[in-house]
Design a protein around this nucleic acid. Structure first.
Length: 429
DNA sequence: TCTGGGGTCCTAGGACCC
DNA sequence: TCTGGGGTCCTAGGACCC
């Protein structure tokens, strides 16, 4: 049996854990540069603020309704996510972390009643130990588990937990569910399906296999099978290493100077390298890209990317050297740049590393020991305690983040102070 | 004035090989 | 006039997810 655990309004919920006065109030969290809305509490949804809405378009509503607004605080959300996932892994045979706020669990099969009891317990423990509310759905396949979680969230009578195993119930639910709600059916496919008169998930299950294969490829066919209870999207289990690692950011304001763009690229490259080492991989190619602001139709536009190859490495210093060389080839002066990024690709795992006789990529040369020390220090004393000089200190490319909450769980200076008496913020724990 | 970031998978077509 | 067949690898582009 597969369960899908989904944290409710995750980022907004994280903010609430550390400031309970936000409970019952509309809360939104903004993307980088405070650009658009990426998380909303139920109260904010009720006010009609859509997902992905540009923040500036809702300024008036936000002020009028007293909506609490936060810049992203990924250090906090990442840490809270870890805590939730740790608890989940105690309650499952295996876990597949699907995103920062979602995980598939493999549960022992059992009667619907015992399954419900199990997920209610998980629901209760996660809330008690982390403060994060979750929705849990259980079914035979991942796609149906997604449907079940959807119900757990929408249907208040489920109190956040739904077991969807009864064949008759599945059928009636699928007949009422719009195809666009199904996991794996996006905007494009919904439009296509509508042309053939396919409106509900049930309609999709009644479509001919060959027809689906021809029009929607194997991806569409897998979805149909999953809806019919036949597992076709494999449960991956404990996370596999990433095949590509990307770090890219829009700049807080547009940048012209080569020097600052180079610093941004070096910074992104260093961030990629940390992620790369965390999963014990070595990269042997990277893409570097830059582009101007698409939204400024009045300004000249330029975008370019370049892929460079090199002997597999996980060393920040070498990777930054490559990134700088790549940037030099694509940078064109005279443009106002808005975004730059680095993508590392073509990984080899440490164990399988093909030794190149002429390059030393083992962990005992001097640069590598330096990088290892750098990781240790930054792990212990916080991100960016030590940086590579190429990353620069001025941070001209810095994000605009005017409303970031404290990093309660990951920075010593930001730890919550508990006061006694009327100022107490936590009633239990 | 102001519009995110990080991923995965699939397909078609071209290059190349025997 | 006729112009193989089967395979692999790579890339770009499309679609989708959270």
């Amino acid at each position: 049996m597969i369960a899908l655990v989904d944290c409710n309004n995750f980022y907004a919920s994280c903010e609430r854990v550390f400031d309970p006065s936000l409970n019952g109030k509309p809360v939104v969290v903004l993307s980088n540069n405070d650009g658009c809305v990426i998380a909303r509490s139920n109260e904010a949804k009720a006010l009609g603020i859509p997902m992905g809405a540009p923040a500036f378009k809702y300024k008036q509503l936000v002020e009028a309704e007293g909506v609490k607004v936060f810049s992203t605080n990924f250090a906090l959300y990442g840490d809270m996510s870890h805590r939730v996932m740790n608890i989940l892994s105690d309650y499952a045979r295996d876990i597949e972390v699907y995103s920062i706020d979602e995980a598939f669990l493999e549960l022992e099969s059992g009667s619907p009643e015992s399954l419900l009891e199990q997920i209610r317990e998980i629901h209760r423990i996660v809330k008690k130990h982390t403060g994060i509310p979750v929705s849990i759905g259980v079914a035979q396949t991942k796609t149906l588990a997604k449907v079940a979680t959807h119900l757990a969230k929408k249907d208040l009578t489920t109190r956040g937990c739904k077991v969807l195993t009864d064949q008759y119930e599945i059928k009636t639910i699928l007949d009422r569910l719009p195809v666009s709600e199904i996991w794996g059916i996006g905007r494009r496919t919904t439009k296509k399906l509508a042309m053939w008169g396919v409106e509900s998930a049930g309609d999709l299950t009644r479509l001919d296999d060959d027809f689906i294969l021809r029009e929607l490829t194997v991806v569409g066919l897998r979805t149909k099978k999953e809806l019919m209870g036949e597992p076709s999207v494999v449960f991956e289990g404990t996370s596999k290493p990433r095949k590509a690692i990307c770090t890219a950011r829009s700049f807080g304001s547009m940048i012209r100077d080569y020097e600052y763009i180079e610093q941004a690229v070096a910074t992104h490259c260093a961030a990629c390298a940390v992620k790369l080492r965390k999963q014990h991989s070595f990269a042997s190619s990277m893409m570097v890209f830059v582009h101007t602001n698409y939204f400024r139709k009045d300004l000249p536009q330029y975008k370019r990317n370049i892929v460079v190859e090199f002997p597999a490495t996980q060393n920040s210093i070498e990777l930054i050297r490559q990134a700088k060389e790549a940037l030099r080839k694509i940078y064109k002066p005279g443009y106002d740049y808005k975004k730059a990024g680095v993508i590392l690709m073509d990984f080899q795992q440490a164990e399988a590393l093909q030794e190149d006789m002429f390059t030393d990529n083992t962990l005992d040369d001097k640069d590598n020991r330096l990088v290892e020390a750098l990781d240790l220090v930054n792990e212990k004393y916080g991100r960016n305690t030590l940086k590579i000089a190429d990353e620069g200190l001025k941070n001209k490319h810095a994000l605009k983040q005017t409303r970031r909450s404290n990093s309660y769980t990951t920075r010593w200076n930001d730890i919550l102070e508990i006061k006694s008496g009327s100022d107490r913020r936590h009633s239990d724990d």
